[in-house]
């Protein structure tokens, strides 16, 4: 078992958002959490990484055998959890290369060899159809929405976590960009890691095979199924689960 969430309840700004979430993810699996706007999807992702803007009021999160419920975000990241942000932050004055080199060093605890690191970066960027000039640009500054999302996938590949959480990484992307993101996920995925995709639409599931689909409505997982469930939701929407 890689991730185990037990009865997790979370508030955001005094409002009850998650009302008892249970989720188990094994190595080698791809999970999807789907749900309408405001159902608590982003809160779930932020709660796993213990964003201080959210308050946990019950339950726990076990990652790789350790309780990470109240760990600091950077320690959770160093244990191997990665999150692709829905709205990645802009950091002026810090280049993509320097940032990733620094983060890689923090995550692995080992010195990063600059030459081979740059080669690796270049390779991934080619795979993701990213302009190599972006390596020297300030992190996310002046990037288009699609470029920001690709940059998140690039970071996932470089930091190579055990669990990658992709929060609405597909939203707002055109078909080609979604294919690129799927390609990135396939490059990343192996039997020793896992992916948790959080999305409100099903587009990305057209180009990606997933193991489990969970439906999150009003702070609770109301149904779990396989890829078939995603298809059903694509056709009928969430209304069936709303009550």
């Amino acid at each position: 078992m890689l991730l185990e969430i037990n009865d997790l309840c979370v508030n955001a700004e005094d409002k009850e958002i998650l009302k008892g979430i249970n989720l188990k993810i094994n190595k080698g699996e791809i999970h999807v959490i789907m749900g309408p706007n405001g159902s608590g999807k982003t809160t779930t992702a932020n709660a796993i990484l213990n964003n201080p803007a959210y308050t946990k009021i019950g339950g726990n999160i076990i990652f790789d055998g350790q309780d990470i419920t109240n760990e600091k975000t950077d320690e959770i990241a160093r244990k191997g959890v990665f999150m692709s942000f829905q709205l990645p932050e802009e950091i002026p004055g810090v280049s993509v290369t320097n940032f990733l080199k620094y983060a890689k060093n923090k995550v692995t605890g080992e010195p990063v060899k600059i030459f081979s690191f740059k080669e690796e970066l270049k390779k991934y960027m080619e795979e993701l159809n990213m302009n190599p000039k972006y390596m020297e640009r300030s992190l996310n500054v002046g990037f288009s929405g699609g470029e920001k999302k690709k940059n998140e996938i690039l970071q996932m590949l470089v930091l190579n976590p055990k669990l990658a959480i992709l929060d609405e990484t597909d939203s707002g992307l055109d078909v080609d960009a979604i294919k690129t993101v799927s390609k990135g996920i396939e490059m990343f995925k192996n039997e020793n890691n896992a992916v948790l995709i959080i999305t409100h639409n099903t587009k990305i599931l057209h180009s990606l095979k997933v193991d489990y689909v969970h439906v999150l409505v009003n702070g609770k997982i109301v149904k779990t199924g396989t890829q078939e469930l995603a298809k059903e939701i694509e056709e009928n929407g969430y209304s069936k689960y709303k009550n």
């Binding site: 990484l49 803007a53 975000t73 990665f82 990645p88 932050e89 983060a103 923090k106 995550v107």
Partner: peptide, 8 residues
């Protein structure tokens, strides 16, 4: 938070 989620 964004930077801390990357291990800093």
């Amino acid at each position: 938070f964004y930077l801390m989620s990357r291990g800093l």
